[in-house]
Amino acid sequence: MSDPVTAMETLRFEGFVTVSQAGSLGMITLRGDFGSKPFGTALKKALGLDPPQKRQIAHGNNSTAAWMSPDELLIFCSWEDKATLMTALQKVIGKRHAMVIDVSDARMTFTLTGSNVREVIAKLAPVDLSPGSFEPGELRRTRFGQIAAAFWLVSQDEAKVICFRSVGDYMFKQLKAASTPGSELDIWT
């Protein structure tokens, strides 16, 4: 079998933060009434996690689930685990009105590292990134420049940004521009 490759595997830029393309990540979209008790119990059985609260991220055994909307979760896992996880999810969902789809190939993930990651995101997205207003544990869907995207903070100096891979090149270019050395704002450092 061929190895999974991302569209632009070697993307990397050393600015005042480092922008790099993360490797292949398993992503599964689950749509359904996961807030209901029986559905929640079923999810716990498959993923080992309680469905996340509004805009939050919940961690399970070998997967992470992020709240996307009242009826949508995005489940992250390793590339190797996704097939097993898909099967497990489909099994516990059974005949419930729900949808489980492997969207791993649809998206690109970027990792931002450096003490000013908040600034780079704040330059591109209409989100209050001041410490206290946005903290690790929350996934925020928004726009970056002109494209839809989502991001979360892994820690105070690491962030992940996801977007559709069809606009991955635009995303990389704007992340690069926003982290160009000399363009630091130093508002939160």
Partner: peptide
């Protein structure tokens, strides 16, 4: 009213 975000016009 669904996700609780205070969305600025350009997000809508």
């Amino acid at each position: 009213p669904y996700c609780g975000v205070h969305a600025e016009e350009s997000e809508l």
